[in-house]
């Protein structure tokens, strides 16, 4: 009976999440009713979801100016990413390398490639199958923040692990 009730709740959540732009909010509302420990599939409270990967583990690492070496914080975060990827083999990932706007277009493409590759190599070293990971560089073409000072630049020098569900071919 209890299991039946939980299923009903989950169906309800999925329906809400499906038409909500904000699965986090939907999850919070139903999570309270279902009691602590309830899992809302697809939301950040579901440890197998891309939302959890993105929000709870963190999908990006940041780099120093003109550098592609991983910081201690980056290594911690990527260690968690690798563990998650090992536990969730249905996902593949494209690692996007980005640069800030201080630099020429071509150099920044090459620098973004270095950053994406640094993340890819780390994840592979930690056991993620190489054929689950691709890299792409956007150079300075896709800044996250648009101001022209270090507060924005530091957030734009990033490598983002973007998950895709299953399918090892593009």
């Amino acid at each position: 009976m209890k299991s039946y009730a939980l299923t009903a709740v989950l169906v309800g959540v999925l329906a809400v999440a499906g038409c909500s732009k904000s699965p986090m909010n939907a999850g919070n509302g139903f999570g309270a009713d279902a009691g602590a420990g309830a899992i809302v599939p697809g939301s950040a409270s579901d440890p197998t979801s891309p939302a959890y990967f993105q929000q709870t583990i963190g999908d990006r690492v940041l780099f120093a100016v003109d550098q592609s070496s991983l910081s201690p914080e980056g290594i911690d975060l990527l260690t968690k990413q690798s563990a998650w990827l090992m536990e969730n083999p249905a996902f593949t990932a494209v690692i996007e390398g980005h640069a800030d706007e201080q630099g020429t277009r071509e150099y920044n493409l090459a620098l973004g490639a270095r950053r994406a590759s640094a993340v890819q190599n780390f994840l592979i070293e930690r056991g993620v199958a190489p054929n689950r990971l691709k890299t792409v560089s956007y150079g300075k073409e896709r800044p996250l923040e648009i101001c022209s000072d270090e507060t924005c630049y530091s957030r734009n020098r990033r490598a983002v692990t973007v998950l895709a569900a299953s399918g090892l071919t593009s």
Binding site: E106, A110, A113, R114, R115, A116, S117, N121
Partner: peptide, 9 residues
């Protein structure tokens, strides 16, 4: 042209 493979261009 330049080509990036494995992070090296």
């Amino acid at each position: 042209y330049s080509l990036s493979a494995g992070g090296n261009t």
